[in-house]
Design a protein around this nucleic acid. Sequence first.
DNA 1: TATTATTAAAGGTCAAAGATAGTCAAAGTA
DNA 2: TACTTTGACTATCTTTGACCTTTAATAATA
Lengths: 153, 153
Amino acid sequence: MAKLSDLIEAFIKQLINDTDGTIEIQRNELANQFNCVPSQINYVIDTRFTTERGYYVESRRGGGGHIKIRRVNIEHKGKNFLMHIINSIGDSISQQSAYVFINNFVDYEVISEKEALMLKAATSDKALMAAPVEIRGYIRACILKNMLVSLLV
Amino acid sequence: MAKLSDLIEAFIKQLINDTDGTIEIQRNELANQFNCVPSQINYVIDTRFTTERGYYVESRRGGGGHIKIRRVNIEHKGKNFLMHIINSIGDSISQQSAYVFINNFVDYEVISEKEALMLKAATSDKALMAAPVEIRGYIRACILKNMLVSLLV
DNA sequence: TATTATTAAAGGTCAAAGATAGTCAAAGTA
DNA sequence: TACTTTGACTATCTTTGACCTTTAATAATA
């Protein structure tokens, strides 16, 4: 028996293919279709629809809540480059390293000056001041990847 | 009844667009149109048409009472407007509130869709996953302000 | 007529109930 | 060991309703 998570993954990918790259699902409904607990949907999303794999995920709780999954376009050569970078960023990264990446993107004309400014603003030590030093790098890496993927949308 | 509040919000915004920026509604009548309790109209107004988001709301009770919503005109002062918003953001903010702010910037054409997506990517719960829940709001507020300031450059 | 009391017609508040999604770690499996 | 499945508990957002306040219109009174 194929693993449930794989089936769910395939199902979601099919959905995305059937549309133009963006879908909106309801966690409970989907869990129901697959006869599994709702949190398994989170597991699938967390392990298969990551920024590293080129997906951008948003969600909302409460009445009318939903999970939105977008597959970004990585066909373009510049974009492909970004995808590689995203994959090469580890779980944690210093401000300095992040800035080096960002400056490189500008040099290679993958992003604009303005976008670079925004990226730096979001990943600076100053912006992350409220976070304990030990975890700043992790948060920064996550933010950086998320933003880069958003540029591919 | 999914996303009723969103429908009401959209309806009101449409009304505002159709006029010159000021509308006058009757709470009960509107609630009737949407088949909801009157207080839901308050909920929508309280969460989506606040001062910080660029709306000015007045109301009057009693016979002939009404709610007047005015969209603040910021055409001549995009940067001042941003500055004002930055100052109105507290030390901590939820993802939802941040997104409402961001969506409003787009409405007001203070930022582009692409910039909005970057802002959302950087301030989402997903991006801040690595941070303890208790301090996420603080980090988010800081990032948001920093990024907005970067847009002023 | 002018003033005051009453009533009806709005809108406001707040908290409980409902509807989703997220987290985390234990248990299961390959 | 690494990945998957479960479920109890948590966080967030929306909907609903009971009760409160304000104001205009009207009736009653001096």
